Simulated scan of single mutants.
Amino acid sequence: MVGFYNDYSNLLGSDLAATGGTGSLDQFNAGEVIVKGIEVLMNYDPLSSAKNISMPITLGYTFTDTEFQNSFGSDNDIWGTVSEGDELPYLSKHQFNAAASIEFNKFEVHLNGRFNGAFRTKAGTGSIPDNEKVDSNIILDLGTKYRYNDHITITANAMNLLNETYAVARVPAGLRPGMPLGVFGGPELRY
């Protein structure tokens, strides 16, 4: 279990296309912000005493609370008009991850589920208006591995296994979708 407390005196952001921005690379100031919370991680293998087989299980939860410490106006789509006490946008209060695997001799199968709670896309407090909200989502991924030898591993993965439709951002230009079902695989070479 870990607690965290970050006191930013001058939070700086950058407009990157990779993070949902326009790609102008402009930097912008968000003033003073406090980000605090707690993270819990648990690992357990119910088959730890078994020979040649394991079943690692991992559970993780993060609670994050944010608060602007000053008021300011911004033309940037991410901030808008900020009042002291507003929450930082694009940061979910609740995130949960669960993973279970079976590892037997040369084979591995991994199932991972992650929950990302709803978050606001503009600074604010209280309930999130529908036009400033990205809804929560649950995504499942499945991965497999076969170790042919010490140097070659064959992998197959399915991301967003249930092909859930979900949003990840609202900038630029409206809702941005998350990754649809994606299946890929191939060899991994290690020398």
Rank of each mutant, 00 (worst) to 15 (best):
D77F: 11
F68G: 00
S71V: 02
E103H: 10
G73L: 08
G73N: 12
S83M: 10
S92M: 00
L59G: 14
L88S: 05
T64R: 08
D65P: 03
S74M: 07
E67G: 10
L88N: 05
I102G: 03
G60P: 09
G73K: 12
V82L: 09
A98L: 06
L91W: 01
I78C: 00
N76C: 04
Q95Y: 11
W79Y: 09
G80S: 06
G85H: 04
A100T: 15
Y90W: 08
G85N: 04
G60I: 04
T66E: 14
F68K: 01
E103I: 15
T64W: 13
A100C: 06
S83T: 10
H94V: 03
D75S: 14
A99C: 00
P56H: 01
A98R: 00
E84M: 10
Q69C: 05
K93E: 15
Q69Y: 02
D77Y: 11
S83C: 03
E103C: 04
F72S: 06
I102D: 01
G80L: 02
A99K: 13
K93G: 12
S83N: 15
D77C: 03
A100R: 05
S71Q: 02
S71P: 03
T81L: 08
E84W: 03
Q95M: 13
K93V: 07
V82D: 08
F96L: 14
K93M: 08
